[in-house]
Amino acid sequence: MTWAGSIFDTAGTPAARIARLAWFLIIVSGVTYLLVLVATGIAMRRARARRTQGELADTRPETANRLTRNVAIATIATTLILLGYVTATALTGKAIAWPLNAQRPLTIEVTGHQWWWQFRYRDSVPSNWLTTSNELHIPVGRPVRVILLSNDVIHSFWIPELHGKQDLIPGHRNTTWIQADRPGVWKAHCAEFCGHQHAKMLFDVVAESPAKFDQWYIRQLASALPPTDSATKRGHDVFVQRTCIMCHSINGTEAGSNVGPELTHIASRPSIAAGSLPNTRVNLARWILNPQLIKPGVRMPPNALSPADMNALLDYLETLK
């Protein structure tokens, strides 16, 4: 079963090992369940036969002895199955731990916010640190150390195709790791209830070849280009003179707030509203006008822009590739 997005649709070692364990447990549980049902069924049939023959309850000592033996056998079998279960769990637990011989690991700091994600790629050269929002790119075949932080409430980082969850807890510094063994594009959900818009706190995951990843990385490091024509210039002015600048940043402009997601390369992202809305011009316009209609309770206020201002702003945002 490789249901897209399911825990069996694996693309990385930890997830694959967990999927194997899960299959094992499901099969063992299924067989155990059938045995219980069959035993119950037989007990009911026997009893029905006895009833139609008008017999009394069977309280003979030899029956009691036989039943005692059977209950004991069932109990011992249960115990043995559980021993196997604990062993398999411990072995898998060991197999999915961070590989101590990891080659050239990449380190990414993840910060959960109500209700969006911030990723900071670390590098030995400080000027090569990269910050993005709601979009996580990773190179195939390279282990990624993930540091989990939160400044508001508890969130949980979960890419089902790669590994299980790990919580982002304010005041704690948790770590996990992921490694993609094949390219892919996935959606990841916040997995711990974090308030109003927990349902729409997603991010896009892109696993790609190391070459493509490097290209993406270099492009993301670049600042936004200054606007060239009058429309985008007006859009830029709308951005920095209206409320946008209060929360968002665009590298290369005076917008530098980090209350909301940074937007330096917003036009290159597949989605907006923390992975919950495809990034199209129409959606962007709807979002900017009144995000409360799309994601009620989100921290972003409605913006009553004139049609001309809105069009200019959209023109400008579309240049932020």
Partner: peptide, 30 residues
């Protein structure tokens, strides 16, 4: 691992109660 083992352990007495009820039906006149 400790808490996994403890969770597994509780399945044993729970199993025993269910086996005993099946045995009750088995030898009874339900």
């Amino acid at each position: 691992s400790f808490f996994t083992a403890a969770s597994a352990m509780i399945a044993i007495p729970t199993g025993v109660t269910i086996f005993c009820w099946i045995a009750t039906i088995w030898s009874g006149r339900p």
